[in-house]
Design a protein around this nucleic acid. Structure first.
Lengths: 194, 194
DNA sequence: GTCTATAATGCGATAGAC
DNA sequence: GTCTATCGCATTATAGAC
């Protein structure tokens, strides 16, 4: 694991509160729909205070998403260390579900926001991690149908994490449900287990 | 089916070109990330010309999404006309997959854009159609696990429609793949066919 | 580390000519 | 039905005091 962001200022408690406020607003209004003023108001500081920590809005967005990407990267590495496709997919499935249930909002934003998608052009590592994840999930020489199943799975996780009707499901329950539903959509035949 | 939008001007060729340009930009930059100027430029007119057709940006967004909602509503009605849960789900599955493959971009925007989500507060019919769809898919007395599976399915459809790696798959192939993957994630056991 | 103040630009929206 | 021109405001971002 290598750290993702080249950041201009040392991390601190102010930085952490900024991330939390920004993420909450990003997940509700989208990145484009969230202004630096809204974030500053949420934290209770001024816009200029935000600009002390990040030089541009883009860098703030990257700063918010980077820790998540590092954790995804860790899961991918852990899966790579396993031998056998089945075991690798199993590590990816459990690791990813654990991770995203822990950081619900972060996955929703990182997975679907168009601003994130465009940032991948300037921060290649963002795209690389996603590509590696999809590639390892699909396996070598995957046909179009398999790739569709993988993208379907990754996109399917977004709904239960973001939807209002699922927001009150406890983490432990949601983890179990997503694992079951995920296995059904990813693994060809017969695969549930508890 | 009742028509969704209360619109200020008669529909015409100008209106249609506006919808197409707006939708293309919405799907690439999100609704918030798309300005009326960008839309006007894409069509080759001025901002003021856009304001002849719609009084606000919100009304334009509703105008773009409304035809899609009507078609979803038609699918729901068609499913309601069937007797038996299994048959209803089958009609929903096939009808929905047919529909969204036909209007890929429209489903991606309508399903995930935060602006659309917030518009549902002012246009209750938008929310109602989604609620009816989810309810009919989940069935009566659905438990949390079933609701998660339904939301997972609806959200999963977004990925293959929007993702770059799937964009060159022909409609016919994509339809077949989504039907298969969808059935696996929605119907408890053994269900493929063709 | 946070503030006030401000610059420069773009936004949604309106008025009125053609 | 489309245009030019403009209003008022919010936006990202900077400069400099404390």
């Amino acid at each position: 694991m290598t750290t993702t962001a080249g950041e201009a200022r040392p991390a601190g408690p102010g930085r952490q509160r900024l991330h939390e406020a920004a993420l909450r607003l990003f997940s509700e209004h989208g990145v484009s729909g969230t202004s630096l003023q809204m974030i500053a108001d949420e934290v209770g500081v001024t816009k200029a205070a935000v600009y002390y920590h990040y030089r541009t809005k883009d860098e703030l967005v990257v700063g918010v998403v980077a820790p998540f990407l590092d954790r995804v990267s860790d899961v991918v590495e852990a899966a790579r260390a396993r031998r056998g496709r089945r075991a690798q997919v199993e590590v990816l499935l459990e690791g990813l579900v654990d991770l995203i249930v822990d950081v619900r909002r972060l996955y929703v934003v990182a997975a679907v926001d168009p601003v994130i998608a465009h940032l991948q052009e300037h921060y290649p590592r963002m795209r690389e991690i996603g590509d590696e994840l999809r590639e390892l999930l699909a396996g070598p020489d995957a046909d179009a149908e398999r790739r569709v199943a993988v993208v379907f799975f990754l996109s399917g996780l977004v709904g239960p994490l973001g939807d209002a009707s699922c927001r009150d499901i406890p983490d432990e329950d949601l983890r179990r449900m997503l694992l079951g539903t995920g296995r059904r959509s990813l693994l060809p035949r017969r695969a549930s287990r508890a």
